[in-house]
Nucleic acid binder design. Sequence first.
DNA 1: TTATATTAGTTGTACATACAAAATATAAAT
DNA 2: ATTTATATTTTGTATGTACAACTAATATAA
Lengths: 153, 153
Amino acid sequence: MDNPMLDAPGGQADESFLRNCLFFNANRLSRAVTKLAEEHFAQTGLSPMYGYLIRIVNGSPGITQKLLAEKLYITPSTLTRFIDKLETKKLVERKVQGKTVLVYPTEKGLALENQIRDASKSFKAAYEELIGQAAAVMLSAEIEKSSALLEEH
Amino acid sequence: MDNPMLDAPGGQADESFLRNCLFFNANRLSRAVTKLAEEHFAQTGLSPMYGYLIRIVNGSPGITQKLLAEKLYITPSTLTRFIDKLETKKLVERKVQGKTVLVYPTEKGLALENQIRDASKSFKAAYEELIGQAAAVMLSAEIEKSSALLEEH
DNA sequence: TTATATTAGTTGTACATACAAAATATAAAT
DNA sequence: ATTTATATTTTGTATGTACAACTAATATAA
């Protein structure tokens, strides 16, 4: 009747609580995958999140900030900061319309589209190579499903 | 032979590149699960990461910072900041030994252990309720496996 | 045994992100 | 038509996290 909560001899403590914890694993994955993505997006001069933001704006000219924040699952205040930066770099453009803000592509932003797609592709190829294509597809799908469930409180 | 890259009528753009992207999903999950974890850890006065850190230190008194950072999959510089904060709150204690630093529990840190465990348990119960126990176990395991693969470059 | 390399930790700086409160604009209710 | 409520965005502030450069200590090599 041994108690796994007590340290084993030699200072080996039981740390299964870490390996079994979704908080811990989710953040670990997020750091690992973000690092890889940043390497592949480096050529675009953008971090991956900004790349995806531009792609959405290019594909939905005039989208509101509210909708953008929802699509990206970030808060409106975070999105404001992102758009600030991209506007400074002339990669997107704001048009205020009453109480909402519409976001439009710019020449420069549209011109980056292909580079961003290439970065996405090589990033995807890289992680599929590392963890296997089937595992990658499954993992994304499972994560998406669970995220949706967690978000409804 | 329609091209999914073009906007559909009505301004509906194809955004499958987001849903299929592991970067995007991993970060979405991380935000959702961190938020839930923070709610459950609020009673301890700590964020979840600090809670786990204290648990490790309590269970492995005198552990080096290097090893702690490895166990948590964070960089040494980040760990330095964490230990700084916990030391200020008298929840752990540093002892310099040559070029390494050993981290020890304190009375106050040990006294928090049960509260931290309770928070972990209720957090775990909460996410298992939301996404299902089997799914949760599977997800953690798959994420751990993939993280390990991504970390080896 | 002095010079050089390696290792552990810290510090400066930067970025992503959130929350709460404020600002602004529209919509609803009296 | 004025007041009140609601919705969108912004701003102030705080936290987690990383990288690069630095410091200090040990280990290796000459």
